[in-house]
Write a protein that binds this DNA or RNA. Structure first.
Length: 942
RNA sequence: GGGCGAUUAGCUCAGUUGGUUAGAGCAUCGUGUUGAUAACGCGAGGGUCACUGGUUCGAGUCCAGUAUCGCCCA
């Protein structure tokens, strides 16, 4: 049955169906956690990294050298940040046409791994010999390389994974040895003593990480050292300086007494003797030593005491008074017993005053007979078992006998213990290998090279300079197994054989078989076919047991990687790491480079800060917050990448759930904008439909001008690696320029105009250009989303063969517009923001209008007003620009520009919702505005 | 304890050689729209520019000190 009134039978919806509403399959919601992995697989399948390299094969090179993370755990959030920054930079550079290969690396050797592996093995009751322990360490490291690699990949990090470098690879280890040979050849390597933690039951050196602090009760003693030759102090009585120590057994190695230069030392007189102690602790000293009736005399600044000579209490030896800044007034006497062979502070003071690094202990912790140690101490052990320490008791009784002991008191403090044997550790000076940093003016050369490098932020140069200036000679030996062995041999008289040619021969063998051969083969086998220097030829040799400091390992990466991989080159254009590396990798790298190659291994160094929590404090150690993977699994890589870009990484970087939510919001804005553009490009074929730049409508010209300026600002920011500026620009461009202004204005014409109409295709032409620029601009940061949008744009659906990452970065010249027209529109839009919105809002408050299209805007201005002319010039565009139905511009004789608003006149068009003076019939659709009538006609619908 | 750095709205950032009433975006609140709809528009509130002192006609901006935080070192 036919309806009498067809209009009623046609639901209002059908008029809506005549509109050109956005149409795209690009999903509104990112669903990144689920969607990103398939894009990663797609990239892998299409060989995206290789394609990018091939595209730029003939471009200028940009070499970023990767600092290798430690392979001892999941990817830390800070490492994720670092890798994301690198990836974003490289993607940007690649889009700029640079050949920017990325060879990532891994730092495999070192104590944290050896420690963890040893601990795990011990829990299983295993204690392996070095070569087997090393295999376990290698397995451990390899397994975390797998883990970390996949976690890096999940972040969207694009790299030449097939060429990744590992410090435990034989080739790499050989480079370390060859670099070391160059050190040796230049005569920079020498042997000297330095105190290290020593576990007596284990007969091994310990690293910081193997030491556990436990509460411990030690005998604390006050000991007087008589001072001779002190006339200048004008004191007649016997004069003593009083030290306080909790390790009596170190007294036989005492070589000095340290005072603080700026503290005041007071004369304490008692029973005809004078004692020097720091003023602040004089009372406690008198009490502790029960010096009843003691009186205080003059005071002397610590620095005045320097070079006084004290007598060792029980050995015929001078102990000079020296100055040290670390002396405190917290406990003791302010006069510190210095045994350079038994403490790190003592050691440094010893070096400063040219004292012997003296340590008369053997591996079992017993005093040796060196002609100085008193006979009754020889062979006595310093090891404390069950609260008893033979050496302490012996020293105490000697002190008593000599009358040097003023008091003994139990003292409870936290003291380092061996994690394996649970016994207190001792500090013991041992032979170590050092690299001299001042020979051949090496330090000056390094400082000179530092000045050739550009440091960002520029404060970085101060940090590295001070690190280089103040660092003592490089102690490169470690008493560990998991590392590259120090290639030294000893003859039966313990003379070391350290020879550059021998090391190079060994390096050749290591290049084949890895450093395990050092641990598996005898010295004789190792040296087979190796030419020895004449003085060692034919002698019975044993190999050394130490390994190299792992900072040598990673410090050689520029030689092992940049100099050896044909795709790379030396020096690097950029190193990018956390600011802690000024003292670490940046420094170790420049030392090895200057020593072995003569100049710095990098041209630019950029540093980022550390991740802190919401309050700006160090992030809690709870595992979830530290692991990059937790965040990826919750928010997706693009949100993480946007988070990284959002902050000025040169300072601290804040991380919080709250922050991620904000970032997610910004992301939604960007995504939605892309969706709007894609939706409105539906059916647009640039080949057929594109409008000539000169014919674009004014608002479109304006949009292109905005885009050009935006692209320019982002480019400036990216060139300086200032992602946070790029982020702000993107946020503003998407949120304000496009969403709030341009896209809002365009809705009427995009939705209601016939597809063939010039105004509509003009806007589509502009959107097409803008979209293609925007999606490129966000690509280095929002890698997944940009590629996804690009894929839908190029008609490839979800996963296209093409990729945004193969596209060039936009140039300002990509955008053609008439600057005058664009500037005019800009003025009109500013006018809208400043003058038009207000009266409209008032109308809305008064409930006269709801939507803006229900309103008309009335403007009155003097004819000679430039604005008046501008408004008149664009009179036809004004309703669209102001998103209202009508705009009148009238001349007035006097006064300022007036803007008012009122309800629009006439009738509401049910199709475009605009108010027009008179609707016209549109057949079955009923009445619509004349323009909509024409649109329906153009669509052949009426 | 020392060196270096940071500190502008609840959050992330701007703020040119010192110059009117310190700006954005997000968030919040109010509101409109319901043809970008788990989307979009409009409006409002919100800052002693960490603090104290100094230089200057004038300081977020220059100087000194203090505090808090971070990195490195001891």
């Amino acid at each position: 049955m036919e309806c009498a009134n067809r209009r009623q039978c046609r639901p209002a919806m059908e008029l809506k169906d005549t509109l050109n509403l956005p149409d795209t399959d690009f999903p509104m919601r990112g669903n990144l956690v689920k969607r990103e992995p398939s894009r990663l697989e797609h990239w892998r399948n299409m060989g995206l990294y290789e394609k990018i390299q091939a595209k730029n094969a003939n471009g200028p090179a940009f070499i970023l050298h990767d600092g290798p993370p430690f392979t001892n755990g999941d990817v830390h959030i800070g490492t994720a940040l670092n890798k994301i920054l690198k990836d974003s930079i490289l993607r940007y550079k690649s889009m700029q046409g640079f050949r920017a290969p990325y060879v990532p690396g891994w730092d495999c050797h070192g104590l944290p791994i050896e420690f963890k592996v040893t601990k795990d093995l011990r829990e299983k009751g295993k204690d392996l010999p070095p070569h087997q322990l090393r295999e376990a360490c290698a397995d451990f490291s390899a397994s975390y390389i797998e883990t970390q690699r996949s976690q890096f990949q999940r972040l969207g990090v694009l790299a030449d994974w097939a060429e990744e470098y590992k410090t435990m690879k034989p080739e790499y280890e050989a480079t370390i040895l060859r670099t070391f040979a160059s050190f040796v050849e230049q005569g920079l390597v020498y042997r000297s003593k330095k105190p290290v933690y020593w576990s007596i039951p284990c007969e091994t050196a310990l690293a910081e990480a193997e030491v556990e602090y436990q509460d411990h009760v030690s005998p604390s003693i006050w000991v007087r050292f008589e001072i001779s030759g002190h006339q200048f102090l004008h004191i007649e009585d016997p004069l003593y300086i009083v030290i306080w120590t909790t390790t009596p057994w170190t007294l036989p190695a005492n070589l000095a007494v340290a005072v603080h230069p700026d503290l005041e030392y007071v004369e304490v007189q008692h029973n005809g003797a004078t004692y020097l102690v720091v003023q602040q602790l004089a009372e406690s000293f008198i009490q502790s030593c029960s010096l009843e009736g003691a009186t205080l005399g003059k005071t002397h600044a610590g620095r005045e005491l320097e070079s006084l000579q004290a007598n060792h209490p029980f050995i015929d030896r001078k102990s000079s008074v020296v100055l040290a800044d670390y002396v405190t007034t917290e406990s003791g006497t302010g006069c510190v017993h210095i045994a350079p062979g038994h403490g790190l502070d003592d050691y440094h003071t010893g070096l400063k005053y040219n004292l012997d690094i003296y340590c008369p202990l053997d591996d079992q912790g017993c005093y040796v007979d060196d002609g100085q140690v008193p006979a009754e101490l020889i062979g006595v052990s310093v090891l404390e078992t069950k609260g008893k320490c033979p050496a302490n008791s012996a020293v105490l009784s000697i002190l008593k006998e000599k009358g040097a002991l003023l008091a003994v008191k139990k003292y409870e403090h936290s003291y380092p213990h061996c994690w394996r044997s649970k016994t207190p550790v001792v500090f013991r000076a041992m032979d170590q290998w050092f690299v001299s940093l001042d020979a051949h003016h090496m330090r000056e050369k390094v400082l000179k090279q530092i000045d050739q490098v550009k440091w960002t932020p520029d404060a970085g140069i101060k940090r590295i300079r001070s690190a280089v200036e103040t660092r003592p000679d490089w102690c490169i030996s470690r008493q560990r197994s998991w590392g590259v062995p120090i290639p030294v041999f000893y003859d039966e008289d313990k003379n070391p054989l350290l020879d550059a040619d021998v090391i190079r021969s060994l390096a050749d063998k290591v290049a084949q078989s890895g450093t395990n051969i050092w641990f598996e083969q005898s010295a004789k086998d190792l040296l087979q076919d190796v030419n020895l220097p004449a003085e060692f030829d034919g002698k019975k040799l044993t190999k050394g047991g130490d390994t190299l400091d792992v900072w040598i390992d990673s410090g050689c990466s520029h030689r092992a990687v940049l100099q050896q991989n044909e795709k790379l080159s030396w020096p690097a254009d950029l190193y990018l790491e956390g600011s802690d590396q000024h003292r670490g990798w940046f420094q170790s790298s420049i030392w090895t480079a200057v020593i072995a190659d003569g100049s710095a291994p990098y041209k630019n160094v950029v540093t980022h800060g550390f991740i802190v929590d919401e309050k700006g404090e160090k992030i809690s150690k709870s595992k979830g917050a530290m692991s990059s993977d937790g965040w990826v699994k919750k928010y997706g890589a693009d949100i993480m990448r946007l988070w990284v870009a959002s902050q000025d990484y040169r300072g601290d970087i804040r991380l919080s759930e709250n922050h991620f939510k904000l970032i997610s919001n910004v992301y939604r804005g960007v995504r939605n904008t892309l969706m709007y553009q894609l939706g409105n490009l539906a059916g647009f074929d640039p080949e057929k439909n594109a409008v000539n730049p000169a014919d674009l409508t004014p608002i479109d010209q304006w949009a292109l001008m905005q885009t050009a300026a935006f692209a320019g600002r982002v480019t400036t920011a990216m060139e300086a690696y200032e992602f946070h500026r790029a982020y702000q620009e993107i946020d503003r461009f998407v949120g304000v320029t496009l969403s709030r202004i341009y896209h809002a204005i365009l809705k009427d014409r995009l939705y209601t105009y016939a597809p063939s109409w010039k105004e509509r295709t003009s806007s589509q032409t502009a959107i097409y250009t803008i979209f293609r620029a925007l999606v490129r601009i966000i690509a280095p940061v929002l890698t997944f989303t940009a590629d996804e949008a690009w894929s839908f744009h190029t008609g490839g659906g979800e996963l296209a063969d093409d990729s945004i990452h193969l596209q060039p970065w936009p140039k300002t010249s990509d955008f053609t517009y008439d600057p005058q027209i664009a500037a005019d529109i800009d003025a009109l839009i500013n006018f809208r923001e400043e003058r038009v919105n207000l009266p409209l809002e008032k109308l809305r408050e008064e409930k006269i209008i709801g939507a803006n299209l229900e309103a008309k805007v009335l403007i009155m201005a003097k004819e000679e007003e430039p604005l008046f002319k501008l408004l008149k010039k664009y009179a036809n565009d004004l309703p669209e620009l102001f998103i209202v139905s009508q705009v009148t511009v009238d001349a007035k004789a006097e006064g300022e520009v007036e803007v008012s608003a009122a309800h629009a006149d006439g009738e509401r068009c049910p199709r475009s919702w605009r108010w027009v003076p008179k609707l016209v019939s549109a057949g079955d659709f009923g009445e619509v505005s004349p323009r909509d009538h024409d649109a329906l006609k153009a669509l052949n619908l009426i």
